[in-house]
Design a protein around this nucleic acid. Sequence first.
DNA 1: ATTTTATGTCAGCGATGTTGACTTTCCAAG
DNA 2: CTTGGAAAGTCAACATCGCTGACATAAAAT
Lengths: 169, 169
Amino acid sequence: MVAQSKATQGGESLLFLTDEQLRKGIEAMFFAYRAFTADPDRILENHEYGRAHHRAIHFINRQPGLTVNALLSTLGVTKQSLNRVLRTLVDDGLVEARVGRRDKRERNLFLTEKGAMLERELSDAQRARMRAAYRAAGPAAVAGFRQVLEAMMDPDIRRQYQAIKDGAA
Amino acid sequence: MVAQSKATQGGESLLFLTDEQLRKGIEAMFFAYRAFTADPDRILENHEYGRAHHRAIHFINRQPGLTVNALLSTLGVTKQSLNRVLRTLVDDGLVEARVGRRDKRERNLFLTEKGAMLERELSDAQRARMRAAYRAAGPAAVAGFRQVLEAMMDPDIRRQYQAIKDGAA
DNA sequence: ATTTTATGTCAGCGATGTTGACTTTCCAAG
DNA sequence: CTTGGAAAGTCAACATCGCTGACATAAAAT
């Protein structure tokens, strides 16, 4: 039996890798991720959209003008799967797909005003929860949180994640 | 609502709550969770099971003898949804559902030897990634990681999560 | 001129979530 | 003892969102 709750500071750098500690981390990821998606999910219900629509909207908002292929590889789904989602968003007037200037095969994706409104509604809810968690845990905990999450990612994805700098507004 | 511009700066304890910082945290959750589930998902493919089976197996292993109702509320799904998964696990001989001793309406769930084998295979893979991330980030980061995740959970779930003590083998 | 790339689309399948309705079993309270 | 309700199981229908495979079109690249 390992006592840990409040005592993971200091120098016990050998204790924290027990299977029980790892199990706690695994369950923390499960429960926290469910909470993390709960608020947007509630909003999306009213709009007849799902989590996949949210993800597409998020990344189009982050990088306006990105191509379908780029979005595809960021989301890690097939083009058929993304296309189903993207089509409804375009049809409903939330996303605009402009033919590429240089390469006319490409489609550059942008949020319309309507799309940007939904994006704000979704990310406001998600940020509110994240902000509350950050405040409750404090700056040092936040740094550790990000470090562990980054270390958990696959290397290619981590590079993609880090490529978009923090101030990239 | 909108950006907490740098006007609200005063010390570095306020800086970390900009919308950009929060967005990074949100994306870190998304990418890390995908990595987190990737290894078990690969294993499950070979067994014709899905992520839902993994979750059921995990929690039955953690609390042998727990009832269907308890598992239901831990997983946060409907009994119909869980039942479909549970039935295949029982039929395939991975899970045993014993009639409750005190209350015969209840079913106490246990992993069989075969079920325990799959559980080990799955959790070994997941723990390996978690262990690597913990090692890379260091003990202080791990503490912060857990703190933020716990703060993100809904209060009821957090209590449920914390109720199972670290040494609960 | 041919090949490759980017995108879109159709069809079908599988896992996993949902609601609603109904049954059986059995504990517990009137 | 009877009755109400809790625990569990089941059937049907549906939605989202992954997947594969096949095929079409346009445009860039060779």
